[in-house]
Amino acid sequence: MTNDTDALIAEDPITGEEIELPADVEVGEIIDSPVTGAELEVISLDPLVLEEAPELEEDWGE
């Protein structure tokens, strides 16, 4: 996780712990929870809200 002073703080939706996100996160971006390793999706930036990311589906990919 970044030590950037502009880093954002959000609540891990699984554990409730505070986690740091890079300042340039985007809505829709997937990040790995530094607490559980689970994939989290950025739902909104103001307020900063994370949710568990959707599970992999069969037609995903390129």
Binding site: D24, E26, G28, E29, I30, E41, V42, A53, P54
Partner: peptide, 14 residues
């Protein structure tokens, strides 16, 4: 058009 912003999309957006 997206449903998940991967590093690929972040590079393009930037």
């Amino acid at each position: 058009l997206y449903s998940r912003i991967r590093r690929d999309e972040k590079l393009l957006l930037a």
